[in-house]
Design a protein around this nucleic acid. Structure first.
Lengths: 122, 122
DNA sequence: AAGAATATATCGAGGTTCGATATATCCAAA
DNA sequence: TTTGGATATATCGAACCTCGATATATTCTT
């Protein structure tokens, strides 16, 4: 179970939101599920990140009151904060994907020359 | 000019040291040169990192006194701290390369499904 | 003689992540 | 019906990381 660091967190969260709007808990579950439990994004890292995305205008948010079928009509119900990728967010994601590719390619160059690299010829 | 974050810094520095012993300034130059100026590892990030590698037993160190040809025989000369990858460091590098590959593969999975992904079919 | 390059290192400020904790609702099983 | 697990958002202090600036000193080039 690997913890995602900021750069990767942002890339992955933006990628998840690119499919469609979602909310914190669902994003966190999506990351755990789609990575077969390999990645986790803890609430203590996720919420500050989502807040930052909102502050930077990469996502817009709205609250949903999820009331159960037989719930007390006066109860507040469960609150869900939806995050929607903004046009700025879409552009940012495209930029980050490109950056990610370049970064990968160069890091792979360093790794490739290491004798520890199982895929290296020497 | 991208700044390397801790995980990547460690992977890249270990990869550089896997070729052979080196010292701080040379490592920093190697990273800048081999990445065509794309990556930088600032002294303020590099020296704490190298110290940590030493503390964790991944590298061993030794000082070299580099005296110039016509230098004052009593001068201390320029000091160079050499870093050599230890057996533990070699194992750690192999583990990190494997981890890096897995991480890449999963992140690519998330990125691949984003409509922003230029390489995606949709 | 001046300045660029070589070389190592620390400092405080600011940012990030962790584990723990807090709060509250909903659902399923005993 | 009550207990517990899952759903759901959020903050706190401690620990850690990185930045830009700064410090110090040597060596090479012009």
């Amino acid at each position: 179970m690997l913890t995602l660091k900021q750069d990767h967190s942002e890339l992955v969260v933006l990628s998840v939101l690119a499919i469609g709007p979602s909310y914190g808990y669902a994003i966190s579950k999506a990351i755990a599920t789609q990575s077969d439990g390999y990645f986790k994004l803890l609430p203590s890292a996720m919420y500050p990140l989502l807040t930052k995305l909102e502050k930077n205008g990469l996502v817009t948010t709205s609250w949903e009151e999820v009331k159960a079928a037989g719930a007390d009509p006066d109860s507040t119900g469960r609150r869900r904060k939806w995050y929607t990728l903004s046009p700025k967010g879409h552009k940012q994601l495209a930029r980050r994907i490109e950056l990610h590719r370049q970064t990968q390619s160069i890091i792979d160059g360093f790794v490739a020359q290491a004798p520890e690299n199982q895929l290296a010829s020497g």
